[in-house]
């Protein structure tokens, strides 16, 4: 089943306050004014998709288009068969697509963890007892059972971000979008959050869209979509995408450490396949050579 579909989506931030229809304004602008240009892709239910791109390549804009925080200027976005343009469907769309943003401090509404997680379910009119059960469940999903009554400002960055994820999970969305949700965390906090995301995808079949500029994170996905200056430039499995070392480099991205080492070895004439993703894999391949 198709969860999210982008059809030739174009978007630009309205910096001019121009009220004319987009067709007319189009002529006044160069292509570089667009944050998102003619992007099409489809994400299936249960998939784990990573979106990669350098700063300002349009990743956050794509995320905000997914649940109708922004609307496309041209093209359509379909979420479980509903267009984000239909305002009366927006509530249903947001129930299905939850976004976790970059800074956990700016996503929490309440001081006490349980009150914050309850915010989403309260908004969609869930019964009080069920909300309480959902808070427990969401805390268990992110491995923070003991923190129900904790004050959010006493938590570490990784813990805060896990609470932010729990706050979105409590709405029980079908799709979890993480917009650089690990960018502000240290390696340990990053691992905590990624482990939670992986297990949600594997154990509960949650559709995950992971937006990141860490290559190691992207290599966890089933599929990677690479953006450059608002356009989709590559799409494929991590192996396919990271084998394009030179191209990625030309658009300001790198590849996972292991792939880089393999590539350097290959350039030096070592007979090794360069499509490795993890250091363990690299280690094995090198061992096979010896």
């Amino acid at each position: 089943m198709e969860a999210i579909r982008f059809d030739n989506v174009t978007f630009r931030y309205n910096q001019t306050g121009d009220l004319r229809p987009p067709e007319e304004v189009l002529t006044d602008f160069g292509p570089s004014d667009y944050a998102v240009r003619g992007i099409s892709f489809s994400i299936q239910k249960g998939e784990f998709v990573a979106i990669l791109g350098h700063n300002g390549s349009g990743k956050s804009t794509v995320a905000k288009l997914m649940n109708g925080l922004l609307f496309p200027e041209k093209g359509t976005i379909t979420v479980f068969g509903m267009s984000t343009r239909e305002l009366e469907k927006l509530f249903e769309i947001r129930k299905r697509v939850g976004i976790v943003f970059q800074n956990p401090d700016n996503q929490m509404i309440a001081t006490i963890v349980e009150d914050d997680i309850a915010f989403g379910p309260e908004n969609i009119g869930i019964e009080p007892d069920e909300i309480s059960r959902r808070v427990d469940w969401a805390l268990r999903c992110v491995g923070m059972e003991g923190y129900r009554m904790a004050s959010s400002f006493r938590l570490s960055g990784g813990q805060k971000q896990r609470i932010a994820i729990a706050g979105v999970l409590a709405i029980q969305p079908q799709v979890l979008v993480l917009d650089e949700s690990t960018a502000m965390l240290d390696p340990l906090g990053r691992k905590e959050v990624l482990d939670v995301v992986k297990s949600l995808n594997k154990q509960q079949g949650m559709t995950v869209v992971l937006i990141t500029h860490f290559m190691e994170e992207a290599s966890l996905a089933d599929r990677i979509i690479v953006l450059n200056d608002g356009e989709k430039v590559l799409e494929g499995t991590p192996r396919q995408v990271f084998s394009r070392y030179d191209y990625l480099k030309s658009i300001g991205l790198s590849v996972p450490f292991a792939a880089k080492v393999a590539r350097i070895l290959k350039d030096k004439g070592v007979p090794i396949e360069a499509d490795v993703l993890t250091t363990e894999e690299l280690f094995e391949r090198i061992c096979q050579l010896l």
Binding site: K64, F91, R94, N103, N106, Q107, F119, N123, G125, I126
Partner: peptide, 22 residues
């Protein structure tokens, strides 16, 4: 950013809203 997060978490005002703790 907070307003984006609140919108994403389906906040639409007091109408149709429940409370965890009655």
């Amino acid at each position: 950013e907070l307003s984006d997060a609140m919108d994403s978490r389906c906040y639409t005002g007091s109408k149709g809203r429940t409370k965890m703790k009655k």
